[in-house]
Amino acid sequence: MISTMVNKTLKKTAILIFWIAVWQLFSMLIARELIIPSPFSTLCALFRLAETKEFYISVFISLLRILSGFALGVVLGFLGGVFSAKSSLFKEVTAPVLQLIKAVPVASFIILAFFWFKSTYLPVFISFLMVLPIIWSTVYTALLEIDVKYTEMGQVFGLKPIKIFLKIKLPLIFPAFLSSCLTSLGFAWKSGIAAEVIAKPQSSLGGMLEQSKTHLEISEVFALTAVVAVLSLLLEITLKKLLGRYRDDKVK
């Protein structure tokens, strides 16, 4: 067991080293820091950023903005999915809006929303917009796919509809819901950062990225991109753990 874990870690480290070496090779071949900075100069840029207070504030505020949009999208998407499964009229009335959100490119929404919201709220709105249709359609489909035998069982044994929903339906759709949360979190994070790059709100990772680009600090752009990617991974792991714990509690 332990040796398998050690082997796994060694393998992952080796893969990481391989790709850093590829990066180093490309940077040496091109030999222009303005196009591809070396891993070392990126690391130096990261350390420089880590020394500033602005960096941590930006990380925190960006997380807050995007997670707010994500949470709003999860809650409203969940409710939308539930009501759509419950009422076909509600489903038909809301279908064009969902279709529109799915079809319109995120860049168009960012530009449009730029005129509607203050720059600080734009990433919240864009993250929300990315999450909403994913959660909505997943919850709707998962609820419709529940085997009617389970709900009939609850009905025959005299369970109230709310108990059937909470104790039978909700745990049955949970795996699909969890997976849609994880997928949409990635989308929310990426599109939220993109919105920050365009809207340049105060104290934001996206704003810092844009600023570094303007100042041709490409190693800083690379460092910030790495931060965005690592944070995305950390968010995914945290959400997986949180929701996994909720599921375990439900089983207990």
Binding site: K149, Y150, E152, G154, F157, P171, V251
Partner: peptide, 21 residues
């Protein structure tokens, strides 16, 4: 009723399935 199929929730224990009703 005992249904033709078990109609038990697989992610709950035997006792939890009963305590549901």
């Amino acid at each position: 009723v005992v249904f033709q199929e078990d109609r038990l929730l697989p992610f709950k224990t035997a006792l939890q399935n009963i305590m549901l009703v």
